[in-house]
Design a protein around this nucleic acid. Structure first.
Length: 588
RNA sequence: GGGGUCGUAGUUCAGUUGGUUAGAACGCCGGCCUGUCACGCCGGAGGUCGCGAGUUCGAGUCUCGUCGGCCCCGCCA
């Protein structure tokens, strides 16, 4: 390549007029006027219009053949555009480059879709040709934002005295939590490494080592089903600190978020963030990650129906279940069909159904109103402070939290349909006081809600054996506009407590020893009290980039079925490779 | 594992009650054009209607199966 760039395609302006410059880039668009030819040259910094005149026959002949996505180098003089030809939509729109030399660096086939932000292509096609999709300004902006966030993160935690330490990817499979990705060992036939679900145990051991404040921007791997905000490999900002309690960890995180928005976007985020106990979040919003940008809170109405004749509610009351209501104001125009759709939605989530009544002209009508007594009408009216034109949506289920979750999902859907969310608002808050354990019906035992290294609250320790489900954890989740973006806890740091926890989880002592013996052993050599948190980095970037999918902020993501469409992963391997590993494949 | 939804030209889509030769826009190819910038004008090529069965005189359209994309439930300490 003879012509090496002196400038990028985004930086030239009137002040460069008269200068000889060289630009390298891709043909974004071409306009051949017969005599004069315009090319928009594109690189990641922007676009610059270059002009070919017929004077130089050789160059002009080559220019005639230029097509979309050809890679070229041009040399020429920066000239001011005629006033009527200035393009105000382009940062370089006041100038153009009059080409004196042209080097065709590479041609391109006609791309399978146009590399333009205003041209759509299906996502599978864009994933198949990810390198072309990544040429688009929109995706480039996301990737560059991700880069800036990563750089800010390193700078912030460095300034706060944190040490970035790498932990292994070839780790040990653990019984609790997500399914592991396994890596067979060639040197130890029949044995496997596991890719880390998170560097949890390593970072705790680094605390035992005295590193005090650790962070890492690190890949994690979980072999579970995907969602629009979940990929099998994803990135965490992993943080751990010694000699701290909840307030210290939450404090660092609040400063991090505040400075992030200040430095990157000059936005002021007030701290500290509100803290909402888990129980309250469920009661008021039906979610452990409530979106606080709008109201529409849940109302429990179970007691109103203690003697109801309405069978559906009566059976739920009898089973000590939960009946809750959402009151949608000025919604009497909701059509029968729309309400039916909401009912189908509840059923698709596993609910038994959605009951509704309308409040018009001072009384309840429609829906289930005819099954309710006059007293019940009055009680609903009073307790829900009903005003005319309200739509009341009710869900009942024998399982209290499940019913609340259904209403929580309905609440989000209604907010979307009724446009209740002010998208310019940024709401950060903590959810705290999570239950330490939850009962797993399938496994017939308690499992850790967060993870088995989370410390119980001191004041609840005496309930560990008597009322395990009552014990609260020293855990905290950070919620941003209804999305969980970070979660962490104060950890257990003594062998005794850790053993007790494993016993509660019905993990046999010899299994605990095999899987976590190294951690418990480390605790015996002066483990400091410690705690930490981890951010879902991709999710954070996704929310800040305001894009609907985590795939939009990952250079090479997988599809919903965990397939890499560009490189075709996963794929079969050479039988010789399997032989070396001592692995044979069962018939499918 | 379960549910929903989509699949028609290179791309994004339309396609009526099952009925003649499946359309549009953009892109692509050829021609014309010296101030355009999502240039313009003229002409042209381009289709295994995802795949496989079935119903029917006749299927892009209906039925069943299957594959793939996306979304949700389960799952994700």
């Amino acid at each position: 390549m003879k012509l090496k760039r002196t400038h990028t395609c985004g930086e030239l302006n009137l002040s460069h007029t008269g200068q000889k410059v060289v630009l390298n880039g891709w043909v974004d668009n071409w306009r051949d006027h017969g005599g004069i030819i315009f090319i928009d040259l594109r690189d990641r910094y922007g676009k610059t219009q270059v002009v070919f005149y017929p004077e130089n026959a050789d160059i002009y002949a080559t220019a005639k053949k230029l097509r979309s996505e050809y890679v070229i180098a041009v040399k020429g003089e920066v000239q001011a555009r005629p006033p009527e030809a200035v393009n105000p939509n382009l940062s370089t729109g006041e100038i153009e480059v009059r080409v004196e030399a042209l080097e065709l660096l590479n041609v391109s086939q006609v791309p399978p879709f146009e590399i333009k932000d205003y041209v759509d292509a299906s996502e599978d096609l864009r994933l198949r040709y990810r390198y072309l999709d990544l040429r688009r300004p929109k995706l480039q902006r996301n990737i560059l934002l991700r880069h800036r966030l990563a750089q800010f993160t390193r700078q912030f935690f460095d300034q706060e005295g944190f040490v970035e330490i790498e932990t292994p990817f070839l780790t040990k499979s653990t019984p609790e939590g997500a399914r592991d990705f396994l890596v067979p060992s060639r040197l130890h036939r029949g044995k496997f490494y596991a890719l880390p679900q998170s560097p949890q145990t390593y970072k705790q051991i680094l605390m035992v080592s005295g590193f005090d404040k650790y962070f890492q921007i690190v890949k994690c791997f979980r072999d579970e089903d995907l969602r629009k905000d979940r990929q099998p490999e994803f990135t965490q900002i992993d943080i751990e600190m010694s000699f701290v309690d909840e307030d210290d960890v939450m404090g660092v995180v609040e400063r991090y978020i505040q400075q992030l928005f200040k430095q990157l976007f000059d936005e002021d985020i007030p701290i500290p963030f509100p803290r909402i106990p888990y129980h309250e979040a469920m009661e008021r919003f039906g979610s452990d990650k409530p979106d606080l940008r709008f109201g529409l809170e849940l109302n429990e109405v179970t007691p109103l129906f203690s003697n109801t004749a309405f069978n559906v509610f009566a059976s739920v009351v009898k089973a000590k279940g939960y009946i809750g209501a959402l009151v949608v104001p000025q919604a009497s125009s909701y059509s029968r069909k729309q309400i039916e759709q909401l009912g189908k939605y509840i059923e698709s989530l596993g609910g038994k159904g959605l009951a509704h009544v309308k409040f018009m002209n001072g009384q309840l009508e429609g829906g289930i109103s005819k099954f309710l007594s006059a007293d019940e009408h009055q009680a609903l009216k009073t307790q829900l402070s009903l005003k005319d034109d309200a739509l009341i949506l009710m869900v009942a289920d024998t399982h209290r939290e499940f019913a609340q979750t259904l209403l929580g999902s309905l609440r989000l859907r209604l907010a979307e349909e009724l446009d209740l969310i002010d998208k310019s608002v940024k709401k950060f808050h903590w959810v705290v006081d999570f239950p330490l354990l939850e009962y797993d019906e399938e496994e017939q035992r308690y499992v850790a809600r967060h993870h088995p290294f989370t410390s119980p609250k001191l004041e609840d320790i005496n309930k560990l054996e008597s009322q395990p489900e009552e014990v609260r954890a020293r855990a905290y989740d950070l919620i941003f506009n209804g999305n969980e973006i970070a979660g962490g806890s104060i950890r257990i740091h003594t062998r005794e407590m850790q053993e007790k926890m494993f016993r509660l989880l019905k993990i046999e002592p010899d299994e605990a020893e095999r899987k976590f013996g190294f951690l418990m052993e480390a605790f015996q050599y002066g483990a400091p009290p410690h705690g930490g948190i981890a951010f879902g980095f991709d999710r954070l970037v996704m929310l800040i980039a305001d894009t609907p999918s985590i795939r939009d902020v990952i250079a090479f993501p997988k599809t919903a079925s965990a397939v890499g469409l560009m490189e075709n992963t996963p794929s079969e391997v050479d039988p010789q490779q399997l032989k070396e590993l001592g692995i044979s494949i069962e018939n499918k």
